[in-house]
Design a protein around this nucleic acid. Structure first.
Length: 574
RNA sequence: CGGGCUGUGGCGCAGUUUGGUAGCGCACCUGUUUUGGGAACAGGGGGUCCUGAGUUCAAAUCUCAGCAGCCCGACCA
């Protein structure tokens, strides 16, 4: 039965905010009795929470099925061998929870399933006639996140829908990719969420093209660049601004000069000390990329986009150098590193904008000294390449229409990738084409964070009183609050409850022996779209009181045709 | 992994400075009265004070080590 009595439901609500939580969705899910933590980033889903998760799952399932995808369920426990085969046992390394069985064979808990899919199909798919396919599952994923946080927004264990397309060629992949793009749009729209699609970096998944589906919210961990004039939209990790370079630059006439800059370790310090603008300074950022030292140069007023640096280097791991490494590896010192007379072992890469600069300030690679009048060609170490390495900021020009870019934050709820043949080649998942030649299967992979979507929905739909569920994913559509202690009220509530159930409207009956205030507050906290209050006050006129959670709008319902009125309202509100 | 904060009944906290054997609010149990926005009164149950070692006649409190949680930075649905 799609309904319930609160007196028998397990919904431990909290009056006060838990101290561990500090964003809306985390606090409210704990307070509404939806989730409880077992460990950092590991949660139990209580009846109310799980019901909402299932609402989202079902929408996802329906739309995936409609798209022609086939639901499967793969092992959560995966062997080390398939990961070694694809080469990701090291790449994904620390992100995986690894363990061994009694025979000392190594396993991990699946953080994703490209390897398993490839393994599963490679012995079965032999011919181009067997393709294409789209296989998906809804399953718990485990990732040993560096820093789990924000409740279900970044958990170590979470529910994900992941799909994998298999095609003979890139045209097929493009087609299935587009189908998934459209399917994802419908899914989030059906969930009642406002999402934006952005171009994305494909990160550890590899592959060529990818898009992310983002719920716009201030608490989002991703920064997104949107053009205000055209439809350009990209994750800042991947966004690139249009830059007009002025390369006419004259040579620097003055000699390179070392100056004393005691304690000036940051660009800000230098601006104050030298009274020069930060645009005349070059920031040198020291990194270790898979063990190799790299220095990235960007203009003093810019921020480095580490993802771009990492991608250019093709590095698996990129991290800032530790202070002691500055001396040992770079032949420099933290806070005063610069591309002049730097150790030749260090690779130097610069942002495009560096090219047009001259007569700049850089670190002198010794404590409390900088160089001024630095000429890029004359004085600096060899620069391996000039690339767009700077982070895009609000006000930059759109790369497509040169309009203005704005930056917003968002929560990534879906991500689609064109993987290509990365996994099929490494794992030997091939088919025979119509010439009898062996070809790698062309793959795509498509994820939706189910539990994250639930959290994102709350981030987007709450007020000071609690959650405001969009109707399609609301755990129940109506909550009935009988107030006072009269048999008439109880009977009317019971009758309405039965009628609503018969009409197929998911309804909660708050039959707890609680005071009015408790019932009102819990109803608001758990965010049920329609609240029907039954009390002797209005019942004597054969009326029920109705309130819409989202707007707070109140009205009276006639006892006689209450069901019709409720059905009509539910079809209208969001 | 680096930096910061915090661990005291289920939840939120005080007590730690100055060591003396644990307290408040909520929740919970019993009873009475209440009953339209988180009731009142009376009685009651529940705590390895994160763990371990140390100092001391005596440790929630002091020392050391460890663990866990949260927040700020690199990963991702």
């Amino acid at each position: 039965m799609n309904s319930m009595r609160l007196s028998k439901y397990y919904m431990p609500t909290l009056k006060e905010d838990p101290t561990d939580a500090d964003i809306a969705s985390h606090k409210l899910m704990l307070r509404a009795g939806m989730i409880r933590a077992l460990s950092s980033g590991v949660y139990s889903y209580l009846p109310l929470g799980y019901r909402i998760i299932r609402k989202v799952e079902n929408i996802v399932r329906e739309e995936m099925d409609k798209s022609g995808a086939l639901e499967i369920l793969m092992p959560a426990m995966q062997t080390a061998e398939i990961w070694q085969e694809s080469g990701r046992w090291e790449d994904f390394g620390p992100l995986m929870i690894k363990f061994e069985d009694r025979k000392k064979r190594q396993y991990c808990l699946g953080p994703t399933h490209e390897e398993v899919v490839a393994d599963m199909i490679r012995d079965e798919i032999r011919s181009y006639k067997d393709l294409p396919y789209n296989l998906y599952q809804i399953q718990t994923k485990v990732r040993d996140e560096i820093r789990p946080r924000f409740g279900l927004l970044r958990a170590r264990e979470f529910i994900m829908k992941d799909a994998y397309t298999l095609d003979t060629d890139y045209e097929g992949l493009d087609e299935q990719y587009q189908v998934m793009y459209d399917t994802y749009s419908s899914i989030f729209e059906r969930c009642g969420l406002e999402t934006r699609v952005v171009r994305a970096d494909s990160g550890a998944m590899g592959g060529s093209s990818s898009h992310e589906f983002m719920v716009l919210a201030d608490t989002g961990e991703d920064e997104l660049a949107f053009c205000s004039s055209c439809d350009y939209a990209a994750n800042v990790e991947r966004a690139e601004a249009f830059i007009e370079l002025d390369e006419s630059g004259e040579k620097v006439k003055s000699d390179l000069k070392e100056i004393h800059t005691p304690g000036a370790k940051t660009i800000e310090d230098l601006v104050d000390m030298l009274e020069l603008p930060d645009t005349k300074m070059v920031k040198s950022m020291a990194y270790i990329a898979d063990g190799e030292p790299v220095v990235a140069l960007i203009r003093g007023d810019d921020q480095l986009n580490e993802v771009k640096l990492k991608n250019y280097l093709g590095a698996v791991e990129l991290r800032p150098a530790h202070p002691e490494e500055f001396e040992e590896i770079f032949g420099s010192i933290a806070g005063f590193i610069g591309p002049v007379n730097l150790s030749d072992d260090v690779k130097v890469i610069a942002d495009r904008k560096i090219k047009e600069l001259n007569g700049v300030v850089t670190g002198a690679n010794k404590k409390d000294y900088h160089y001024i009048n630095v000429d890029i060609e004359r004085d600096m170490n060899e620069i391996e390449d000039y690339l767009p390495l700077r982070k895009v900021i609000a006000g930059d020009k759109c790369p497509e229409c040169h309009g203005g870019l704005e930056i917003k934050s968002g929560i990534e709820v879906g991500h689609i990738f064109k993987l290509g043949t990365k996994y099929s080649e490494s794992m030997n998942a091939t088919y025979l084409d119509d010439n009898g030649r062996e070809q790698p299967i062309v793959m795509g992979s498509y994820g939706i964070g189910i539990t994250r979507t639930v959290a994102a929905a709350i981030e987007q739909n709450h007020d000071e009183k609690g959650i405001v569920w969009p109707v399609p994913i609301a755990p129940y559509k109506v909550i009935i609050l009988p107030l006072g202690n009269s048999d008439d009220v109880d009977e009317a509530a019971e009758n309405l409850y039965t009628e609503l159930n018969e009409a197929g409207i998911e309804t909660i009956l708050d039959d707890r022996d609680e005071r009015a205030g408790v019932k009102f507050n819990d109803a608001e906290l758990i965010g049920i779209p329609l609240r029907i209050t039954i009390g002797s006050r209005s019942l004597k006129d054969d009326k029920f009181e109705l309130q819409i959670r989202r707007t707070g709008e109140e009205s009276m319902l006639d006892k006689e045709n209450a069901i019709d009125q409720i059905e009509e309202l539910l079809s209208k509100i969001t």
